[in-house]
Design a protein around this nucleic acid. Structure first.
Lengths: 343, 343
DNA sequence: CTGTTAGCGCTTTCAC
DNA sequence: GTGAAAGCGCTAACAG
């Protein structure tokens, strides 16, 4: 009895197995299965190969292929958290863009146990060819170093990162302007904006738009800054906003902040929109379902994901990519949280 | 001049490069870097190797290692969508459980463009060793087949899947019971529950708990079923619930449904909790920030993630895993959406 | 049209 | 304590 590698699990079929069954060389199997344009197998051979592969349930061993080709055809999407409803849109876009170019996508999240380790490993250990990183903070030395050490296989999304010369963002300034304009149209003059730390790119740009619009309409650009990005941060900021400025309208600059704003206003017994109007940035699953439904300025988040995938893959193919703003104008979605000021 | 493989990108250092620099064989480098207990390199050699590796910025090429070892030390987490706030908890748990056992985690989502393709590829092409699948539907032939063809490397989570003999779930029946009990304690008798399709395991078990509690307290087990899992589905179901049953309390059995319930109640001018009490299952980021804050029964979602990771890795190591309910009792988190019935 | 050959980077048994 | 050798499964250049 010949020595046999006994095993309970049937070993996965390899090209060699398929070749044996189809009575051809493994290399020919490879060419046929991959539709190699240089290979012209006879119709008969081809169908023998195909049916053998099917019979054996053959699937490519990507570890082997990746080793050979030195690429994985997979990109990583690094998200700060999974709760933000905008992430879902972004992820969709990334997946769509990647799929069209033959790439797969895996998602990891920043904030997690070993998240940092996970993400850098994805890249340095060859699980993915490149990474789209939803920007958390403009000072991200991990990503900066990773970018340097990986010959620029990192694409910051939704903002810039210091030391990385490419990014894909949205027209945040314009969107913030539009929020103010809508409020002004309704007669509001006492508006306060709630923004994240301006050491981060996207909040910084939102502030720019906010101030610009305030200047244009000659109203006071009241701002409450907060460090974090959670609903709780928005809650605290709103409390500060109402005691400090007695506004008739509040502009929490993210969905999460808006959640906190609703909570604070509810607690303090302000009615929306009768007593205070509220408007936010980004139209997502949640804006529609708050009570009252939240007026927002829609930004092309899904498009940003898609463009990012395309740009990253361009980069992997050696093209130079610079900072880029996704076009596709922001649009106002009026719902129940904003109303004309009764004066 | 010797022929030189010119390239703009500096090739990543390999074990051979490190060996060359440290003047040792690559195999020794491998043993040292991996802390192989069978290898005893002299202190001097070891430090030469370590510093050479550091100098060359060596990182393991996982494609090569995976090919050699026939495993990836990575598991996949398949999520139906990214919007559900419970997912974030689950993902955390999975990551934690996996990390403790030396595994990494990648996330993919079901519902996406090519999502099915992505997920099966992750497994069949050797990107991950196994998959934790958040159950979408009890009839999931894709996963069922994948499980069969992969020798059982799929672990359904949050419910069972027909044809797969293992799973990790929560104590949904108990949690549903507790929701009813809380309502009954407050004097409510006209309660209606909103549930997803009972062809799916987790809704089915929630219904069981709901009916059991209703029977116990001798109240009518009014139920509105809905097919989908979105806030919009919850919205429609709530509309139906109020016209059909004129309830004093509603029990939307998921966070998403609850969002829809709030919306419907707002539209129809019912005040929460003055006119109608609302309670839901799962305590998440969002329950706390609705207006009013939503009373819920907390379920150990994060724990479920962690246990799932551990169980899946057990399976990969050849252990048999059966259907399992995460213990850790559900607990009532009383907030502002439930109130004593004024009769 | 098809086969031969070599080698991607790694781990592991077996020598010395 | 260290090196030599083999081979995981794949692709690609070259032969025939």
């Amino acid at each position: 009895m010949p020595p046999k590698k006994s095993s309970l699990v049937p070993r996965r079929a390899t090209l060699r197995d398929v070749g044996l069954l189809a009575k051809v060389d493994p290399s020919l199997v490879s060419r046929v299965l991959n539709n190699d344009p240089n290979a012209t197998a006879s119709a008969a051979t081809k169908s023998r190969i195909l049916s053998a592969a099917k019979k054996l349930n053959y699937t490519t061993n990507f570890s082997a292929r990746n080793l050979k080709m030195a690429k994985t055809l997979t990109i990583g999407l690094l998200l700060p958290d999974l709760t933000n409803p905008v992430n879902d849109l972004v992820a969709h876009g990334v997946q769509e863009g990647a799929a069209e170019l033959g790439y797969g996508v895996v998602i990891a999240n920043h904030s997690d146990i070993g998240g940092d380790k996970t993400i850098s490993q994805m890249l340095t250990q060859g699980h993915v060819d490149g990474i789209i990183a939803f920007v958390h903070s403009i000072n991200d030395s991990l990503l900066e170093n990773l970018s340097k050490n990986s010959n620029g296989r990192i694409l910051p999304m939704n903002g810039k990162i210091k030391g990385i010369e490419c990014s894909v963002s949205l027209d945040d300034p314009k969107a913030a302007e539009m929020c103010v304009e809508h409020l002004v149209d309704l007669g509001h003059k006492k508006i306060v904006g709630i923004f994240g730390s301006t050491t981060n790119d996207s909040p910084r740009r939102r502030v720019v738009g906010f101030k610009k619009a305030c200047a244009k309409y000659n109203i006071q650009p009241n701002i409450v800054f907060t460090q974090g990005y959670s609903a709780h941060d928005g809650y605290l900021a709103t409390l500060e906003a109402i005691t400090k400025y007695s506004p008739t309208a509040i502009f929490p600059s993210s969905n999460s902040y808006a959640l906190g704003t609703y909570r604070a206003l509810y607690e303090k017994k302000f009615r929306i929109p009768e007593d205070i109007s509220v408007i936010t940035l980004h139209n997502s699953a949640i804006t529609e379902f708050l009570s009252p439904p939240l007026t927002s300025v829609r930004l092309p988040a899904e498009e940003m994901g898609k463009v990012s995938a395309e740009k990253l893959i361009d980069m992997l193919n050696g093209k130079k990519v610079k900072h880029f703003i996704v076009d596709g104008k922001p649009s106002l979605v009026i719902r129940g949280s904003t109303a004309r000021l009764n004066s």
